[in-house]
Design a protein around this nucleic acid. Structure first.
Lengths: 179, 179
DNA sequence: CACAATTAAATTGTGTACAACTAAATGGCC
DNA sequence: GGCCATTTAGTTGTACACAATTTAATTGTG
């Protein structure tokens, strides 16, 4: 078995037996349960999104992270890898090979900056810039796939961003590292 | 550069220039913009969660997906790989190596079922079952890290699950596969 | 100017995700 | 009983993520 078959892939929100026994002890089990719901739901939604993008972006020969890089370049023009990483919250370990694949696909070029030999400038090629035309229909198809109203999407986004900020701050606070 | 440093890692919700020009043309750019927000926010939140779990679970020697597998086993008892996949929405390509790593860590055993030689039963070892005790504090620490009220978490979860369902359905409809 | 600290990319290694494929076992159906 | 479709795991190959390390360039300081 493999691929896209989850025979029992019932709703992501099965809400199993409402609670083993709302009154009975097991407050710890409850917590383990709840916790699974939040992060798991998030994770599942993220992967589901990825699945839809995978289907839609296949025509363009892009993966979702590659599409994100191009979105940034289309919006802001050529950028060094560092800036891309800041915008996308990705580090060089992820971006270096990813950008190389975009280069191999003929969508961008990479060259060290003249002022600062440490920096690598990522530039859209004509082909990479042209791809934007074909990408214009992607957002509409994605929005349609969610079946959400724009307002609801916005609200969800606001919460997610707030969550991300809180989690980032907590990770820093929690980290044992020097601060 | 690598690791956890995003020097410009400003808020995930910077809400840049509210809009290049709310009235001006560029409805397509707007869409490209918006779309990035939804899926990107989701993706960022998911990775941020992962980061917090990574820190908290390091003591237990677990990754987040491994923790999810154990959560399911703690809750439902021993299960075949298939059932694990249904609960977690993961296929054998992901679960096979993951479960093997749990086995290597001495937390579970894998053995083919007697009734059905195709099926592989994943069983908690004493050590795996015992780890639950140490995991009990994880949810509380995670909940604290989000800084969210329980009610808000629940609401968010409900939306995410609805989103996942919609996206799964859309992926099926969008897929070129035989139907 | 010299030199330590910092910075930007790249590299290495581990661990998911997932598509595509393989192999073995099971279940109908004639 | 023989045979084919289905089911369950596992394998292979590609592509992220990210920690840790490495290399080269730059900067700050005395």
């Amino acid at each position: 078995m493999a691929g896209k078959s989850y025979p029992g892939a019932m709703s992501a929100s099965p809400t199993p037996p409402p609670t083993p026994s709302a009154t009975e002890a097991a407050p710890d089990s409850e917590w383990l349960r709840l916790d699974r719901q939040i992060c798991f739901s998030l994770n599942a939604a993220s992967r589901a999104f990825n699945g839809v993008y995978r289907v839609i972006l296949k025509d363009l020969g892009l993966t979702y992270p590659q599409y994100l890089v191009l979105l940034v370049l289309w919006e802001h023009g050529d950028l060094p890898v560092k800036k891309l990483g800041e915008r996308l919250r990705l580090d060089s370990g992820t971006l270096s090979p990813l950008v190389k694949r975009l280069e191999a696909a003929g969508l961008v070029t990479r060259e060290r900056s003249a002022h600062d030999e440490r920096s690598v400038q990522v530039r859209l090629t004509g082909q990479g810039a042209a791809l934007r035309e074909r990408a214009l229909e992607v957002p509409r198809r994605i929005a349609a796939a969610t079946g959400f109203e724009l307002a609801e999407i916005g609200e969800l986004r606001e919460r997610l961003d707030r969550l991300t900020d809180a989690l980032d701050a907590a990770a820093l606070a929690e980290a044992p590292g020097p601060r």
